[in-house]
């Protein structure tokens, strides 16, 4: 889907549902999704004000949090560091709905 104008439901915390990944596609679900236990999950909190909160499993398996900015450019989701104009990560949004966000690298 084209997401030139982010839909309201995109503004939430999305958690990596790695059990559902296929090939190079990563599946994310809302934080309220019933996830099975895992050694760790990445999440991205896409906030309305353009900031993003990241959480990743850290070196000792606790969650490691960091912050940055995000924007939608056509079908691309760009994640920027807290400072700087070069995106740290760029994903192609291959499908998006209120309960499922699918991203592909590049």
């Amino acid at each position: 889907m084209a997401v030139d104008t982010p839909r309201e439901w995109l503004h939430q915390e999305w958690v990596h549902s790695h059990e559902e990944d296929r090939d190079d596609e990563m599946v994310f679900r809302p934080a309220s999704f019933k996830f099975p236990p895992s050694r760790g999950r990445r999440s991205i909190d896409l906030r309305r004000d353009g900031t993003v909160g990241h959480a990743r499993p850290g070196p000792d398996d606790r969650r490691q949090r960091s912050a940055g900015r995000w924007e939608i450019d056509g079908h691309a989701l760009k994640l920027f560091p807290a400072t700087g104009k070069t995106p740290a990560e760029v994903y192609r949004i291959t499908s998006a709905s209120p309960d499922r966000l699918v991203l592909r690298s590049g």
Partner: peptide, 10 residues
């Protein structure tokens, strides 16, 4: 909480 399996301290 959060579906975590464990964590450690170095």
């Amino acid at each position: 909480g959060d579906g975590l399996l464990g964590y450690a301290q170095f």
